[in-house]
Nucleic acid binder design. Structure first.
Length: 116
DNA sequence: GGTGTGACCAGCT
DNA sequence: AAGCTGGCCACAC
């Protein structure tokens, strides 16, 4: 309580973290999909903002599996190095080219469709 | 307590 | 066709 620094103080963040952690290995999802799954459709920005706090969470969040609707690695700059996100994705077998996930439609993991 | 911002999305010009 | 603005909600100062 008294969120003085504990990022887990918020429910929304925990929900986002939980969904991201549920993303299978070698799969990717989008901010809007998570937002829609949480019921806050249109608030995809909050998901991205939650990801920003993901590194504050004690739990390791595979934020590299979260990309924008176009499959573009928009948040690559927030990993400390712009190449880390792509490196992590390629490490999982996800091919990335031009900061974009190849076969994004096939690797796309929708929580509202597969998680249920 | 109000204002600003943010790793987006979709629509309008 | 392409660029930009608005809108959405939650967190920090």
């Amino acid at each position: 309580m008294a969120g003085t620094g504990h990022a887990d103080s918020g429910t929304f963040f925990e929900s986002v973290f939980a969904v991201v952690q549920l993303v299978p290995f070698g799969r990717v999802t989008s901010y809007g999909a998570i937002a829609a799954f949480l019921g806050t459709k249109g608030s995809a920005r909050m998901v991205g903002w939650a990801m920003n706090a993901s590194h504050t969470s004690v739990t390791r969040i595979p934020a590299h599996r979260v990309v924008n609707r176009n499959g573009l690695l928009t948040g690559r700059h927030h990993f400390g190095s712009p190449a880390i996100m792509q490196q992590l994705l390629e490490n999982e077998g996800v091919e990335v080219k031009d900061n974009q996930v190849v076969r994004f439609a096939e690797l796309f993991w929708d929580p509202a469709r597969e998680l249920i």
